[in-house]
């Protein structure tokens, strides 16, 4: 009998050992495509997500320990930086692009406005090491983390030992960012027939499908491609977009199509944050297109909208606001 008891205890100890890692179920919203991120290479667990979340909110990632990822990617504004046209780094340094909103990243294969980064795991390296952002070195981040018992513990519970490496740090950051799924806006509820559009929103939706959705494709509200959307060149920034990466003239002035989800909060707009208001964005598409040779085909025919129609489209765009996402406690500062 005693022997059995011992076996039982041994089994439960082993079982508890496995229980230490609690797997996180990543749910694909109804009707959405399969994510492109390969979860088998970095299986989500609650402990790793928590580690990533702590890192995301920790200014230790920057050279002088003053700014964190969340400094420019604030949850309440869809993980972007309101009122900052260009990204804002340590010592008030200003970068050359608008901070993108972070959500639904498991479906993205290229990151940054020019697609310079090809895998979510490597994305965090760019702001950490960019001179105008965190201006730190990943090697040094690891050194700093290694000196803190708090991180030793977090890495231990996430990975089963307290070894802190670049790979583990970056994978944990990916894990937290992968959980940032926004799929509970009014639009989503209408699609699931749990809510209805107002007449104005419905008009706006139809106009949106006619004029905007070839690039801002549902349900992600981006086709994840790079497009030239006819913006005049900013002669101070002289940013040629995707061409810097591919060195192909045909990619000149192409930028990654951003999602429109939570657009109510993600102003200012465009890769350089040149527009503060949605009305300015719509005005650009109706009146401001520069006809470059590689202009997005969808913009070659002029878009004609009355001011009422613009109001309708705006009303529809506001249905993409997802309050559950913006105020989800799982995404906020880890207390």
């Amino acid at each position: 009998m005693k022997k059995y008891l011992f076996v039982l205890i041994a089994i439960s100890v082993v079982f508890c050992g496995f229980k230490l890692q609690s797997t996180f179920d990543f749910t694909i919203p109804n009707g959405w495509p399969k994510p492109t991120y390969d979860f088998s290479k970095n299986p989500l667990t609650d402990e790793k997500i928590l580690l990533g979340r702590v890192l995301f909110y920790d200014p230790i990632l920057s050279k002088n320990n003053t700014i964190s990822c969340a400094s420019c990617h604030s949850q309440y504004t869809a993980f972007t930086h309101v009122d900052h046209a260009l990204s804002h780094g340590i010592e008030d340094r200003i970068g050359n692009r608008n901070t993108p909103a972070l959500m639904n990243l498991a479906w993205h294969t290229n990151f940054m406005w020019d697609g310079a980064i090809h895998h979510l795991d490597f994305q965090s390296l760019a702001p950490i090491e960019n001179h105008d952002e965190m201006d730190e070195k990943i090697e040094h981040v690891i050194l700093k983390l290694n000196q803190l018992p708090r991180y030793k513990n977090l890495f231990f519970s996430a990975y089963g030992d307290s070894l802190i490496t670049g790979e583990r740090t970056l994978k944990a950051l990916s894990q937290f960012m992968l959980t940032l799924v926004s799929a509970n806006s009014k639009y989503d509820k209408v699609m699931q027939q749990k809510d209805t559009f107002t007449q104005q929103e419905q008009n706006g939706y139809l106009l949106f499908k006619q004029h905007c959705s070839s690039c801002h494709t549902e349900p992600l509200f981006t086709n994840l491609q790079f497009e030239n959307n006819g913006l005049p060149v900013d002669t101070i920034l002289n940013d040629w977009g995707r061409m810097r990466i591919t060195q192909k003239a045909t990619d000149s002035l192409k930028f990654k199509v951003p999602t429109l989800r939570n657009i109510e909060f993600s102003f200012p707009y465009m890769h350089d944050g040149r527009f503060k208001k949605l009305s300015q964005v719509l005005h650009h598409y109706t009146n401001g297109i520069v006809h470059y040779s590689n202009l997005s085909p969808a913009l070659k025919q002029p878009i004609i909208l009355t001011s009422n129609q613009k109001v309708d489209i705006t009303a529809f765009l506001l249905t993409l606001t997802d309050k559950e996402f913006l105020f989800n406690k799982q995404f906020s500062y880890p207390r």
Partner: peptide, 18 residues
Amino acid sequence: EVLSGDLDPTKGMYWTWQ
């Protein structure tokens, strides 16, 4: 995906901006 050991990006042999 991000790899470990000699391929860990902390080895100073990974471009961070691209």
